[in-house]
Amino acid sequence: MSQPGIESPAVEVEGVRYAYGDREALADVTFTVPRGEIWAFLGPNGGGKTTLFKILSTLMRPTGGRVRIFGHDLAHEPHAVRPRLGVVFQDPSLDPKLTVMENLIHHGHLYGLWGETLQSRARGILEQLGLEDRVRDLVETLSGGLRRRTELAKVLMPRPELLMMDEPSTGLDPGARQDFTAYLRQLRQQDHVTILITTHLIDEAEQCDRVGILHEGRMVTMGEPDALKRMVGGDVVVIDAYNPGELQGKIRERFGCEAVLVDGTLRLERPGGHEFVREIVEAFPGAVKSAAFGRPTLEDVFIRLAGRRLWSNHG
């Protein structure tokens, strides 16, 4: 591992484990985030994302392994790391009884800012996020979307070098989500901020530089979204059958390939998906309710590795 300094990576996680009593929430997680990248941790609820987030944000200590942020060991030097961190929690951490400005001033004081510097930074960031008309509004009177924006303004004001966000786009509509992602890219571009987010949204993860997929406390894979999708061979064919189990056997007999039964639908990875859909429908008339094929998404990567869907009704 590298020494603290200009060159050390933003985040180095080495063999990190965490257990709540007997239940292992994280098992031997290792990865390195270079500076200036946007990473997404994707996975179902209960996969370990939130535990990892709490450890990286200095709230919890891992039961094993080591975390370094900008070269500083979190176990020994959290005070060296915290001033450089910006953390956006899933629940807004604003005080509803204070105004937007008062919340920012309070936060600035905690980060050692005061006086004129603090005032001008607060005004600057509020203007940048389009909140200048809300400065004197009590936070409890703001809509959910405005609250999230205020939260972001608050966290960005001390100019963190590493920004961490737990499910940041929860409660944002698709349009706002697009704007949000664009804003993150701009932040990375202009201020060279390293950004980590946790998400359960496929499209959000696909827009990041790198994606780590967490399942049952393990980092099952990580890499660039396109590289991960190339792991899936060809197209993904999804068949909704009247009797999936029976069709699964028939496909094996006839085509010599194994369809996986996930949440009641059959899935196959196959080059030339459109041809295959036609062949199946013709070979087993009346057995197929509907069939579709498409380019693989990160969800297909997850299904391949975890054997279940990200959003499972049965999980």
Partner: peptide, 10 residues
């Protein structure tokens, strides 16, 4: 959740 932000502050 207000306290969480205070706890991760320096």
């Amino acid at each position: 959740g207000f306290l969480q932000a205070v706890l991760v502050a320096p």
